[in-house]
């Protein structure tokens, strides 16, 4: 999904950007398997289910970061929370709970959220950090206003998301579906436009790429994935809790940075973001296994993040000045 019809780089093929993160994930899986016999024996499925909202939100963060210009969406956490709250307290609580309404509604709500952010950033041209900080406050505020205390009672079909009976847990199909749709998108000109805008918007503009439209669509895509994350979050939580969503924002940004995506735009993809998120979650899982305190966990997060971005930075520099 990464280097679609990009011709081989002169002097040998360059290592794809997500390889370090993917390797780190494999290493973490090996370490975890050594520590816990149950992990390979099905424990990983549960881990994956709990990790899925973060993985999806990290993937959601990717398009806007790729679109450059300081592109960033601080509102993905509260956005997913808001979608979750509206689904649980707005639809399901009013007996509108059939899958063919709830699932499209989740995606649609996400698209609306993305369109709001996209309008603010691409059309009104408010700096992304400020625009999405403001919508963070707005979404979080509305979510808590709508739903003061957590609610439960989900329709039975939503248990599908948390089911781990199959060969792979069902959330994997959700991620694969999102990734697959994204992969189809990377087969269109949009992917080239996105990279072009992200790495040099002035060059893209003079070449005739519709910069504003590309950025707007990037936010809408982020929003759509946020909507899916909101749906999965509802299923994983077994209900909606307005306070949970916002906690994901910083983790998602950390995951994107861990996944090797350049915060300056123009380099990266969904796979890296997903690897970054998986890495964060695996570290957390491992430290829980070793009965390390949550304090160590917190510190490890920070250290991993700092080390990873330093390595990414050094690698990036080497790539640019061979």
């Amino acid at each position: 999904m990464t280097t679609v019809d990009r011709a081989p780089i002169r002097g040998g093929r360059a290592v794809p950007y997500f390889v370090p993160a993917a390797l780190a994930v494999l290493v973490m899986i090996a370490i975890t398997a050594q520590k816990s016999s149950q992990f390979l024996d099905g424990g990983w499925k549960l881990v994956l289910v709990y990790a899925s909202p973060l993985v999806l939100l990290a993937m959601a963060q990717a398009p806007v970061v790729l679109s450059g210009g300081g592109g960033l969406d601080l509102s993905v956490g509260p956005g997913a929370g808001l979608v979750s709250v509206i689904l649980a307290a707005g639809l399901i609580a009013h007996q509108i709970s059939v899958a063919w309404i709830v699932i499209p509604a989740a995606v649609l709500l996400g698209v609306v959220i993305g369109a709001v952010n996209g309008s603010l950033v691409a059309l009104i041209r408010i700096p992304p950090i400020i625009a999405t900080l403001a919508t963070y406050l707005v979404f979080a505020g509305i979510a808590t206003q709508v739903l003061a205390s957590p609610t439960g009672a989900l329709p039975v079909w939503m248990d599908w998301f948390t089911d781990v009976e199959g060969v792979v847990p069902n959330v994997v199909w959700v991620m694969l579906l999102v990734g697959g749709l994204w992969w189809l998108l990377t087969r269109t000109a949009f992917w080239r436009n996105l990279l072009m805008v992200g790495s040099n918007d002035r060059a893209a503009y003079t070449a005739g790429v519709p910069v504003t439209a590309v950025r707007f669509v990037a936010y809408v895509l982020t929003g759509a994935m946020t909507g899916v994350a909101g749906l999965v979050l509802t299923a994983v939580l077994g209900g909606a809790d307005a306070t949970v969503g916002p906690t994901y924002t910083m983790l998602a940004i950390a995951a994107v940075a861990l996944g090797g995506i350049s915060l300056a735009g123009g380099r990266g993809g969904l796979l890296g973001a997903a690897c970054g998120a998986a890495l964060l979650f695996l570290i957390q899982n491992y430290l829980t296994l070793t009965e390390a305190s949550s304090f160590v966990l917190q510190m490890a997060y920070g250290l991993v993040l700092v080390v990873a971005i330093v390595i990414n930075g050094a690698w990036d520099r080497k790539r640019k000045n061979p």
Binding site: R192, N200, A207, G208, V214, R267
Partner: peptide, 21 residues
């Protein structure tokens, strides 16, 4: 005005393909 993250060919034809087409 070149984007360093796209291939030369993509740089040459940037903006000729429409948004998705």
């Amino acid at each position: 005005l070149i984007s360093d993250d796209c291939s030369g060919l993509d740089n040459v034809f940037a903006g000729t393909d429409g948004l998705f087409r």
